[in-house]
C-alpha cells in the first residue's frame, strides 16, 4: 500500500473540504476579469416597440422606443403648439429608466451626465439633445408657453443625476436627434464613485413613424 504524503496545508484543506467539492471552492478563489457590459434587446409583445437594457455593475439603464404619436399626444395635451410637438416627437425620443441596483454599503453611487454621452449617426458624433437646449430655444423664441415648458422639463430625464444604491431611479424622455426609423450607436458614460465607465450600444433604432406590425419584428 502506498501512503501519500501531503503538505500540512493540504492536509488541513482535505480535512475541511471534501475532495469532490474542492474544484468548486477553488473557482471562487480564481480572479475573474471584469465582465463586459451586458446589453439586451427585447421586443414588446403588445406594441412591437424595442427596448435596450444595459446592466453593468450597479447601473441598470433601459431605453424604450416611444412612437412619435405618443410623444406628440403627450405634449399637445400639455399646451405645446403643433409645430413644436412635431419637431420634438420626430427627434428620436426614447423613454429612459436609470437605476442604481447596487447594495447599500457596498455599491458606489452612480453619476450620470447626459452631456458626456455620444450619439453616432451618419458619420458624425454629438451629444443627445439635452432638455436645456430645447428650453433655451423655446425661451428665446417664445414658441412654447411657460406651463408647457414646465411639463417638458419634468417629463424629460434629468441631464445630470446621482443615483444612490438605496433604490434610487428616474424615468424620463431623452431625445437623441436622428429622424424616425434611423439607426445610431450610443456611447453611454457614467461614474461609479470616482471611476469613469462607458459602453457603446450599437444599432439602436429611433422609433418609427408608425407602430411596427408584430410579424415584422418576429424572427
Amino acid at each position: 500500500m502506498i501512503e501519500r504524503h501531503y503538505p500540512a496545508a493540504t492536509r488541513v484543506m482535505r480535512a475541511i473540504v471534501p475532495l469532490r467539492i474542492l474544484p468548486i471552492c477553488l473557482l471562487f478563489l480564481v480572479p475573474t476579469p471584469p465582465a463586459l457590459p451586458e446589453v439586451q434587446r427585447q421586443t414588446d409583445a403588445q406594441t412591437g416597440l424595442l427596448r435596450w437594457t444595459l446592466r453593468e455593475g450597479p447601473l441598470r439603464f433601459d431605453l424604450v422606443q416611444r412612437l412619435p404619436d405618443q410623444t406628440r399626444a403627450f405634449f399637445l395635451a400639455r399646451g405645446f403648439p403643433k409645430a413644436e410637438a412635431d419637431r420634438l416627437a420626430e427627434a428620436c425620443v426614447f423613454q429612459a429608466i436609470g437605476r442604481n441596483t447596487g447594495t447599500p454599503g457596498q455599491a458606489p453611487a452612480v453619476h450620470i451626465d447626459l452631456g458626456q454621452w455620444r450619439v453616432r449617426a451618419g458619420g458624425s458624433e454629438a451629444p443627445p439633445l439635452l432638455k436645456e437646449q430645447w428650453l433655451d430655444d423655446w425661451g428665446r423664441s417664445g414658441a412654447v408657453s411657460p406651463p408647457a415648458r414646465l411639463a417638458f422639463r419634468w417629463a424629460t430625464f434629468p441631464s445630470v443625476q446621482t443615483f444612490e444604491p438605496r433604490g434610487d431611479y428616474n424615468w424620463g424622455m431623452i431625445s437623441f436627434g436622428p429622424p424616425p426609423g434611423a439607426s445610431f450607436d450610443l456611447e453611454m458614460v457614467w461614474h461609479e464613485g470616482a471611476q469613469r465607465r462607458s459602453a457603446w450600444i450599437e444599432g439602436l433604432q429611433c422609433p418609427p413613424e408608425a407602430a411596427p406590425r408584430l410579424e415584422e419584428t418576429r424572427p
Partner: peptide
C-alpha cells in the same frame, strides 16, 4: 436578497 435590500431605503 441583496438586490432587494436597497429598494426601500432613504439616503
Amino acid at each position: 436578497a441583496a438586490s432587494q435590500t436597497g429598494t426601500h431605503l432613504l439616503t
